[in-house]
Design a protein around this nucleic acid. Structure first.
Lengths: 177, 177
DNA sequence: AGATTATGTCAGTACTATTGACGTAATTTC
DNA sequence: GAAATTACGTCAATAGTACTGACATAATCT
């Protein structure tokens, strides 16, 4: 099994480090940080028979109540078919409700129920605790620094999807002007 | 379809914000940042018929040449069966080679080939560019701040897996003393 | 009336992951 | 030296999340 016949390449024994100025340290840290960050809610979700997809839908429905199916697809960057099953389960279990769009009756505006809001909060709580602990541990007094870095990591053309201050989307939600 | 009969919960129309002091802003930013961060290499991987799992294996084999299968499983937090197919493909395509462990011949030490190293670099390049651009855009002069924050986001008991300075793991690799 | 839009749904597929079971070879323990 | 343990590989079955393509319905726009 260890034979490397048939012209296999020779093993490279030196670790990749900063060749070509690649920032492997932060690349790797992002992997570890995100891995553990998402592991928090995963255990709660398992109790409901839900997965990460449910979490993401629930999160954005709570953050932007009244968003339409099309808007949700755009934020999540998934297809209609992928969303269908997940959204249906959330509606069947009374975490999310659909309302006919007032202006356009074809649209379905999505809203959380009290149950859906409670679950969203329960899922966010351990994640928020982790963030606050991390800010404290790393001695970063200005959380703005982390916010700015993360925002700058997002594709420029997609930054419109973000509402950092949660102020832009208080009254009416989307694309109003 | 918009009937909410059978005792459905009432829609909540106010956006979740900072109730209970939950840090929704950073929670959401982490989602967006990671979504776009991983989208970079995905396109390159598609050309090889590979997925994110291949990328992760390739990354760690390059970062810690000579790690064993068991160590890799521990870092990735997946099962042997999940790794099997992915690793086999990387070996068959001559990106990774296995060598018999010198001390323990049951072990398979994993090393990148020149081909595997080249691919790892190609995958890391756009991610590194994004990170540097983000550090610049956000006006963070000290990259240490971001590193410290991300490291603090990782579960304390798992921080041993990280080698930030890529200095800890130069000569001998893993689990010494 | 006809085209377009928003949504839902069906069929088929792919990738990544899971658990459980079993086999083999090497090492360790007694 | 025999027995137990360890490291790895593999087979079978299953689940969650995603994909493409196609089609249907209702509402709106032209």
């Amino acid at each position: 099994m260890t034979d490397r016949s048939h012209a296999a390449g020779k093993p490279i024994r030196t670790a990749i480090s900063d060749e070509d100025g690649i920032d492997f340290a932060i690349i790797e840290l992002l992997f570890f940080a995100y891995r553990d960050f998402t592991s928090d809610p995963d255990q709660i979700l398992a109790d409901y028979g839900f997965g990460r997809a449910h979490h993401r839908v629930l999160h954005f429905v709570n953050r932007r109540p009244g968003l339409t199916v099309a808007e949700l697809l755009d934020v999540l960057k998934i297809t209609k078919q992928s969303l269908a099953r997940v959204l249906k389960q959330l509606i069947d279990t009374d975490h999310v409700v659909q309302l006919q769009g007032p202006r356009d009756r074809r649209q379905r505006e999505l809203y959380p129920t009290a149950k859906g809001r409670a679950l969203a909060l329960a899922l966010a709580r351990p994640q928020s605790r982790r963030i606050h602990a991390a800010l404290g541990d790393s001695g970063i007094t200005e959380r703005t620094l982390v916010e700015r870095f993360l925002e700058a990591m997002v594709n420029p053309e997609l930054r419109a999807q973000i509402d950092v201050g949660s102020a832009k989307m208080s009254g009416k939600s989307h694309g109003e002007h």
